[in-house]
Amino acid sequence: MNREIYLLRTGVANLASVEAAFERLGARVRIGSDPDEARAAQALVLPGVGRFGVAMNALRETGLDSVLKDRLESRRPLLAICLGLQLLGQSSAESPRARGLGAFDLSARPFPAGVRSPQLGWNRMEAGEGCRLLRSGWVAYANGFRFERRPVGWSAAWSDHGGRFIAALERGPQLACQFHPELSGALGADLLERWLQRALGPAGALAGGTAC
């Protein structure tokens, strides 16, 4: 098995942590923002720090938005991290005028008053029904916005910070984490390994895979 991922450079994310985490797993990491290469990649990673609107603009300018939309629709392997998860939704209160990739009809909203925001550090994640890749445990967050509902067709893991929110979503070889698996110690490394095997294994290689 050729353990290679294509890590999208969106111009607003720092990639070093993600790159290092996959390299520790013995994977080869290619970094770029070429739509054709991204389309051809078996295992694609959409990282994310920065702001929703800026990131969407960057995806649109490079034509990566349609590559990602197609991949989401065809259920090909994808890992989205932090802001990457939020970009899969419809919109975000962070950048009210920007439109997301629209894989599901959710809008990211800020944490309520009364809890520290942004949420920085480790929180418990509880994997819900149907999760194959996600397992319960402590994960590392750095976010000011989050989704509060599970979209249809995805299995969800949850955390609580002033109320329950989506810690991660999975659907076959597609995994989207609000937390940072690359910064979540051994639990994060195990999750990345399971996703890598799912993405590059026989089931992930079949375009489509199966919805969980």
Binding site: A16, L120, A140, A142, L183, G188
Partner: peptide
Amino acid sequence: SIPVTVGGGVTDVDAARRLLEAGADK
């Protein structure tokens, strides 16, 4: 594989970018 915050000598956006690109998380 845990978050790393880096400070010292950050005087502008470019210096911060260099640290983030080198692997700082904050």
